[in-house]
Nucleic acid binder design. Structure first.
Lengths: 357, 357
DNA sequence: AATTTTAACGGAAACGTTTGCGCTCAATTA
DNA sequence: TAATTGAGCGCAAACGTTTCCGTTAAAATT
């Protein structure tokens, strides 16, 4: 077992000092032509690679970004990680992931773990429990320690930082208006409880679209579901809820669902009840999932472009990290740099498939 | 912006030495009752947390495990990451992920990046390109540097390390025998090219099941597809291939598919051709995906228990890491500890749904 | 009273880097 | 010939810890 080779080792065996080796490998002009070559050759021979940890300690930066998400077994979030990973790697950063599992305490714990030197900045999406409790102190404390945060998708006004969101509102407006344009008169909405901002925004988009089309928003046609707990596990509950919904409102001619699961389940129930899709009932879901493409009929969706979200979030974070570098290096004048934060909106796109006319 | 508080800072402000602070916080008996209390109180007040990077440098261990997977937007892999993350966190480790994107060079690059001090060990699944090229030097070099590796799912005999695999072979045998028991006489197999070991094993399982049931394996009934490239993107190609397959072999009464996409696509095509599932054609897929549950009819599968795979892999890795600790600390006798590696097989389970009788 | 023990703490090395500064020796300049 | 320059290299500090080894003074032993 060959142990990792260090500068000290090379220095000893070549009978020079550690600093000479360091400089030689950095191609410093201060080192003589021949010794430089000698050292470089020997280092290459030993396959020397500098120790990242030592560099991190010295440079006070780890070149690592922490990603904190509520759940990873979820197409949307894994797509985002992919986006983050791509630009991070390309810009010389590593990605370390933490899962909050929608729990406040795990979110706090994970942040504290990673904030103690392991990472340079965070990209995160807030857990449901945190949103419910509305306790955001850990975010602000982290930012106060000089560790920048970029939030995506589930964001919150109480924390000042860069954000990347989806145009939930106007995406929903577009979707519902498409249903209206397709001749739908009684558009059902299947949505979640209000505490997650995205659900609320999508609901508002639904209402706005109706309003702008001089249509009356019937309270009956709105089904609010509590998605706390394991959604995937009690599918049958979901199905019966939706079935009740259809039976109570036979006039329904279309469904707008705020996530993929609701949409495909609605289709399944509708088919079971004898409706034809899209003739009797048209369906649009808000999602970035894999179910929609393979459902039968395939589902028309408002696509969220998860990868783009991840890429943009990583870019924002790294931009800020490297901007901070420049500041601390060059202008030490205490001119309080106006801390201006950006909120980038990633456009949604309607992908038409078989569930709409 | 409050900068991170260090031992040195506390020491200065309390007019003691750094070592005293360090010991006081470690509850060392060497420090007097009162100073100990004083220091602990002040540290708690300042919310002192030790710097992970400094600790890593000192202890020569990072308490971080590197996970290298071919792709993250994939239910199977994200489930595994979840499993890894759960036990890692619980045992005090962090998880840093790298994506090879099925590319050999990205796999090598990622390993080199992380191997330079960033992580204590790897959990990985080999990229397709690497399997094709059969170049495994980076794995062996990493192991030689003293960094343990645990491979999962896509493993290879050429590398000696702990492994976690699925019983692909016997899982397939079980599945095909179930079809046979259900009265199927002409079982079609939809599989991949042979270079990924799991595909080959599942194919062999299919053959064995037929053999053991004294049934003849018809070459026509085996469809081998090349899944290089973006599977999801050319769904239509996949569909036409499968459609041809059905048309050429009208006697087919069931399908065993080695992955979820093949299985659900086969169902879709079958339905389009007028077959009834499961009456005319029964389908079983080998998978750990989300499509199967929501397909209509829902798909009977051989489940792989991805999370368990991840958990077991992480446990194996951490076990070995902490075993190495004990060795180097206590018995320095050069008795060459017999390096014995384990290959754990995670049992599959057939989950019966609507696509079989 | 002289010695040993012990409690309580500080100094410094170490982990692997980078880098400012100083040193030496030769070459150039005055 | 004496002084200045510069090339080429080493020393040591620094990053934040932990820990071995002192050191000091008081307490306990003889």
């Amino acid at each position: 077992m060959k142990k990792k080779v260090t500068l000290k080792q090379i220095a000893r065996e070549l009978d020079v000092s550690v600093s000479t080796v360091s400089r030689a490998l950095a191609d410093s002009k201060e080192i003589g032509e021949d010794t430089r070559r000698r050292i470089q050759a020997y280092a290459k021979f030993l396959n020397y690679k500098p120790n990242n940890i030592a560099l991190s300690l010295k440079n006070k930066k780890t070149k690592t970004i922490g990603v904190l998400i509520p759940e990873i077994v979820h197409h949307f979030f894994s797509t985002i990680i992919r986006g983050i990973e791509i630009v991070a790697n390309q810009r010389g950063y590593n990605v370390i992931v933490g899962l909050s599992n929608e729990s406040f305490s795990k979110e706090v714990l994970n942040m504290e773990m990673l904030a103690n030197g392991s990472i340079d900045g965070f990209v995160l999406s807030i857990s449901k429990e945190t949103l419910l409790q509305q306790d955001y102190h850990h975010f602000n404390e982290t930012i106060n320690q000089g560790i920048p945060i970029v939030m995506f998708d589930r964001v919150v006004n109480e924390v000042e930082c860069d954000k990347v969101i989806v145009d939930d509102f106007s995406g929903s407006v577009k979707a519902v208006k498409k249903l209206i344009a397709n001749g739908c008169k009684h558009i059902g909405l299947i949505t979640t409880m209000d505490y997650v901002s995205v659900g609320r925004l999508r609901t508002q988009g639904y209402l706005r679209a109706l309003e702008e089309s001089q249509m009356y928003a019937e309270p009956n046609l709105i089904l609010k579901l509590d998605d706390m707990g394991a959604l995937e596990d009690n599918l049958d509950i979901l199905e019966t809820e939706i079935e009740q919904f259809f039976k109570k409102n036979p006039e329904i001619d279309s469904i707008f669902a705020v996530n993929e699961l609701y949409a495909v389940t609605a289709m399944k129930v509708a088919k079971k009840l004898g409706y034809d899709i899209p003739c009797d009932i048209q369906v649009i879901g808000f999602t970035d999932g894999v179910l929609s493409k393979h459902a039968s009929p395939s589902l028309t969706i408002v696509s969220q472009h998860g990868q783009k979200i991840g890429e943009k979030a990583a870019d924002l974070l790294i931009d800020r990290l490297e901007l901070n570098d420049d500041e601390t290096e060059s202008n030490h004048n205490e001119k309080p740099k106006k801390q201006t934060f950006e909120t980038v909106v990633i456009e949604t796109e309607i992908i038409e498939r078989e569930s709409t006319k």
